[in-house]
């Protein structure tokens, strides 16, 4: 009788304790296969739930996208003729130097379906296993690196954004292509770690993926240097950067395959 009374009196606290404990267990061990599978299923379900949103956003943005693309097409046409000339010359020089040809990146276009958090850390895109998407493939848009695929459903994929607290990418920056690691800090800003003081770095320079990791091919733009400080007591410079991708206004992205 007494134990029943105690349980009913403290049931709120017990419920709180159980829920908090389970949350903490999830927080500290969230990469189990069960959670992975659940994440993939929820991602698929969420895509279906938000399909009307994508439909009307597609309609609203089509006209605007069309005029932008027409403009881009003309610019690209001009560039193309110039590049065609360079290509012929490049091929000729490569043959002379016996270089292997470089395969261009294979890109799979995708549509963003969610962006409901004030501090975005992940988004869901409308391609999945059915489109041959795999885990840890880079996701880019026209401005640069956006993130990587994390959880793959049949028809949808969760993308870990470059702004995620635990996101890291190896980069090269500056004229000497010095190596460093990109870490997000807050909003659209981040820092570059490991850039040695001997490397000259200027504001406005772009950091590109180094190509060292198995995930990211080289030379994808990542961030622009906004401030450099060498006056510290460490062997490395304090480099602040701004992420190139506009994470507030994206619709279409590309999965690098």
């Amino acid at each position: 009788m007494k134990s029943n009374w105690i349980v009913s009196f403290h049931r709120d606290a017990i419920a709180l304790g159980i829920s908090l404990l389970v949350s903490l267990i999830l927080l500290f061990s969230n990469k189990s296969p069960f959670i992975d599978a659940l994440e993939a299923d929820i991602t698929d379900g969420y895509l279906i739930l938000t399909s009307p949103q994508r439909w009307y956003r597609d309609i609203l943005s089509t006209k605007e996208q069309n005029s932008l693309l027409a403009q881009k097409a003309i610019q690209l046409q001009l560039l193309y003729s110039q590049n065609e000339h360079f290509r012929v010359e490049n091929d000729h020089l490569r043959r002379m130097l016996n270089f292997a040809s470089i395969n261009p990146l294979s890109l799979l276009p995708a549509n963003i379906t969610n962006r409901h958090s004030a501090m975005l850390q992940s988004v869901i895109i409308d391609v999945g296993k059915n489109h041959d998407v795999r885990k840890n493939q880079p996701v880019i848009d026209m401005a640069g690196l956006m993130g990587k695929t994390i959880s793959i459903g049949e028809i949808a994929t969760k993308v870990q954004l470059i702004t995620d607290k635990n996101y890291r990418v190896s980069i090269r920056v500056g004229e000497k292509k010095s190596l460093g690691i990109f870490l997000p800090s807050h909003g659209r800003f981040g820092i570059l770690e490991g850039v040695r003081k001997s490397m000259e770095l200027n504001v406005g320079e772009i950091a590109y993926t180094s190509g060292i990791s198995d995930i990211y091919p080289a030379n994808i733009p990542v961030a622009r240097v906004t401030s450099v400080n060498s006056n510290n007591d460490r062997p490395f410079q304090d480099v602040t950067v701004e992420i190139l991708v506009d994470l507030q206004n994206f619709n279409y992205v590309f999965v690098v395959q």
């Binding site: 949350s23 999830l26 927080l27 500290f28 969230n30 991602t43 850390q121 995620d164 635990n166």
Partner: peptide, 11 residues
């Protein structure tokens, strides 16, 4: 969490 988190599931 399952929709929006990657490494902080449970937060």
């Amino acid at each position: 969490d399952l929709i929006s988190q990657v490494t902080l599931l449970g937060l």
